[in-house]
Design a protein around this nucleic acid. Structure first.
Lengths: 230, 230, 230, 230
DNA sequence: GATGAATGAGATTTCATTCAT
DNA sequence: TATGAATGAAATCTCATTCAT
């Protein structure tokens, strides 16, 4: 499931797979004081993203990035300490984009849990598809660099906790299977959707968006035993 | 869900997360003709596994492996072409071990689909836990090396297909939600269990085995709307 | 032995280890015309000294110095051509301080050669201790940069010559061992005191000031066979 | 004063400036197992010495050394970790040479302290002259690298202690000025000779060997008030 | 005068792979 | 078969100095 940006104080339960922000700031330096500096830094970040997506994190050389950004190698070090750090900057840049759902993905009826789940899932798959290369990259880097691995772990935890609360709430309202551990169920079901998106958009076994949304929504609904309209 | 090795020709539906074998042979050379050669090769493979598990695939240097195997660097090339190849050999060696469930994990009552699912899941989590380091390694390597990525993809597909057939069979017998796409559901639910195992045993958010088994079994059963004893 | 600043025209022989001034001017630029310029330049020189003393000459980066002086890198080049030149400026600044003995170190009785030697030695050790970091730095730089090496050599020569003349005078007056080559003896004995100070205050094998003064004075006196009160 | 290698159990006091060995082994790796390895390593050490003496420690590049040794850059790292380490190896190689006095420098009459001092001093100056470039290098490196600085300090200490004991012995036998602190006097007088050698052979103010020996011996003798034949 | 971003030559270091012994 | 020294391409990172603003 995925991101929703409805910030209204929902009385309805918000089961969601919306990605929590990454804890990046610690890796980043002060932003440059001059406009020129800001421009150059941004050019580097964009160049880095292109190079990373083209060559992968490991095969990306710093000189490829500076060449792509049309500046000298030295300039790289004016803004970053190393590859890891510029990758964090790439993620930070992309965060907005990744969090931003398309349009119209907010469920009309917040009181129908299934509709909420469906809307969330749809938003998630769409966002994942749009950022597939970056997601792939993130996965790759998390498997290489402990810092990003930890970042991913914390994001997952925040995620699970939020959805766990939502599930507990549904259970309290008699709308979800009370025999489930809400936090573990949250982890399992969110993971399910994440994995489906990964295999579809990163591993290349692509499935039609609607099929992904329908199947995962139906599985969530069944799994939680949500009351169903049909 | 996970691996089962019950090889008896089950009449009952075998919903399963049992891992299909990896398509490794293409990567491997002829076995060495002399007994001494076999010994040296094996020493290298075992050493490689220790080094990989200790340092990770990327940081493992060939000289670390030969040092660990107490042979010279040159000897490595008598048996392998490169790191990729010895990693394939490590997997091959470990395959048996990974497929082999502990004991008694076969469901007594093959006619109770939920019991089958539970047994499979339990076997899977147990095996995953036992081989956590290797699973982590496999994940890492798949994210780095296209050959192993493809291998993982194929395994996943075989997996999904097998379970998809099982789900379709249950549907045909009126035991599972007919509105689900059986192949997609298979992928989603297997992925769910895989991810849970990964986060528990690789990422370090460990949960009690029974909780993992119970939650994932309940979610499978609910999701497929299997008839439940209660 | 060490520096004395007694400027009265002594009739008595002035055996001394007083440091001759360094031949720095050649390395320095014109002073800046504006008051603001003078201020900035001074800030740089003081910052440089702090950085040199903290990090050593080699490890001091120009940007460390400008950062410490709270000005931009470019500003450095308004006043200096390079690190060498600002180091010369630091020495120039410190020269006064280094030459200036504490108080009252002038021997009362200028006719007692041993008393003169003792006063000189005491002044030298005190000054060396006060400026130990700078002396260490000077030593380090002389071992790296030919210009400062030559500077040190010339200072040593001027030194030796002055003391050589003093010893020759004592010999002429029948107060010092006539079999000694006065210039070589001057070099040897001054070197002895310099080395003692170096090992005590720079290398870290510190000895009590009085012990240093007493031993070196006694050795000078004995070595030259000066008439001794006892 | 300088090195003597007379190992006979001298009843006579051995005032000496003989250099204690440097504590190098800790910096060095295991020697290579094969003859070829030994040869290559030695070629590198000799090449390094030539390059260090030609260009100085700081300006010597690793590639200069490997070029001089006619091997590839990689080979350097088969035997050494860095410049520091090969410098230690150069010193180790040179140690024998530096410790070895020429011939005939052993005083005939070990019971004449002045003769002993003279022989020691002569041997020291001769050795220093022979190894002037290396001594200069050592001085330079000690001013740059803490490891070698410490090494030099320890050597100095061992030195001072040995000579301090000798002086104390002479005092006990009524042959040296009892008012001197023997250890401080040892440090001062040894330092004097070291400095003289340094200024003569490293700094370029060369003096005739005999003049150096005579002056320093006379100064030692006077300074300690040794009984003198004349 | 002051600023600070941009430059880029050049040094160190790694390690899979080869090959003579 | 086994050895381990030799190889060298390739990548990262530094920092004094310049110069447009």
């Amino acid at each position: 499931m995925a991101q929703r940006t409805s910030t209204k104080t929902a009385t309805a339960t918000q089961v969601t797979t919306e990605m929590p922000r990454l804890a990046l700031p610690e890796l980043l330096r002060e932003p440059p004081p001059t406009a020129r500096g800001v421009r150059t830094r941004l050019a580097l970040v964009h160049a880095a993203r292109r190079v990373f997506e083209r060559d992968g994190y490991l095969d990306a050389r710093l000189t490829d990035i500076t060449a792509e950004a049309k500046c000298s190698t030295g300039t790289f070090y004016t803004y970053f300490d190393n590859k890891e750090q510029i990758f964090a900057a790439v993620l930070e840049e992309a965060q907005e984009e990744m969090l931003h759902p398309g349009v119209s993905h907010v469920a009309e009826d917040d009181d129908d849990p299934v509709a909420v789940v469906e809307a969330s899932n749809r938003a998630y798959f769409e966002s994942y598809k749009r950022n597939a290369k970056l997601m792939s990259l993130l996965e790759q880097v998390a498997n290489i660099d402990a810092r990003f691995r930890e970042m991913r772990r914390l994001r997952g935890l925040a995620f699970a906790e939020r959805n766990g609360r939502a599930i507990a709430d549904l259970q309290a309202r008699g709308l979800a299977d009370p025999s489930l551990d809400p936090y573990m169920a949250a982890r399992a079901l969110s993971g399910m959707v994440g994995r489906l998106a990964y295999s579809s958009y990163v591993m290349g076994d692509e499935q039609p968006l609607d099929a992904l949304v329908e199947t995962s929504t139906r599985l969530w609904a069944n799994a939680l035993r949500l009351p169903q309209p049909d």
